[in-house]
């Protein structure tokens, strides 16, 4: 994966426009603040969307790419429906997260990023989400002690799910998957190749 960012050192906005999904919209932001005020999670972040967009324009590259803001977005779309300039804010936030990951700039111990990785590993393994394994991994994401505590807390729900056949305890060994797992993985590989190619080709 080539690091294209060198070409844009002096202009982070251009870098975002070229590399971040929907990044070309950032310059359309008029700094009205509606998105920040509308975001149900905004108060828990370092930087609300409006501020992120201003920081991009101000060239604050490191601060933006290492911010936890885009990882906290829950895709509620409140901001998008209200933005007077119709910026695809949610998508830009995800685009920024994606770009930060490509550059290896995810903030340490960022829980959403960690969970996203767990989810992807789980899914890409057999082409189906193994909820039992994912759940266990998630409970133990922050260490053994906390894992056991969470497991105990969730015990009754788990038992209930098993009773109503919503969860199969045998999933913990192997688990269900696609019939043609090889074909599925070849598809993922191809998709990754195409994505790498897209990233390596500078946008006009």
């Amino acid at each position: 994966m080539g690091d294209m960012s060198k070409n844009y050192r002096l202009n982070f906005l251009k870098e975002v426009e070229a590399n971040v999904e929907e990044g070309e919209w950032v310059k359309m932001c008029m700094q009205c603040g509606v998105c920040s005020g509308s975001c149900p999670l905004g108060k828990f972040w370092n930087h609300p969307p409006q501020e992120i967009f201003m920081m991009i324009r101000a060239g604050k590259r490191e601060e933006v790419l290492t911010s936890n803001a885009m990882w906290m977005c829950t895709s509620c779309y409140n901001c998008i429906v209200r933005c007077p300039r119709e910026l695809p804010i949610t998508h830009i936030m995800h685009g920024l997260a994606h770009y930060a990951k490509r550059l290896g700039l995810i903030p340490q111990q960022q829980p959403t990023a960690k969970f996203a990785q767990l989810f992807w590993n789980n899914l890409s393994n057999k082409g189906r989400v193994n909820e039992l394994k994912l759940g266990v991994k998630l409970y133990f994401m922050n260490g053994i002690g906390e894992g056991f505590k969470t497991s105990l807390k969730m015990k009754d729900i788990g038992m209930g799910m098993m009773k109503t056949k919503r969860m199969n305890p045998l999933e913990i060994v192997g688990g269900h998957g696609l019939e043609d797992i090889k074909g599925f993985q070849a598809m993922l590989k191809k998709a990754q190749e195409l994505e790498d190619q897209r990233i390596a080709t500078p946008r006009p």
């Binding site: 700094q31 009205c32 603040g33 920040s36 005020g37 905004g42 930087h47 609300p48 409006q50 501020e51």
Partner: peptide, 11 residues
């Protein structure tokens, strides 16, 4: 009235 101001990003 709820919002976030642009000069300081205060809620």
């Amino acid at each position: 009235v709820h919002g976030v101001d642009t000069e300081g990003y205060n809620r």
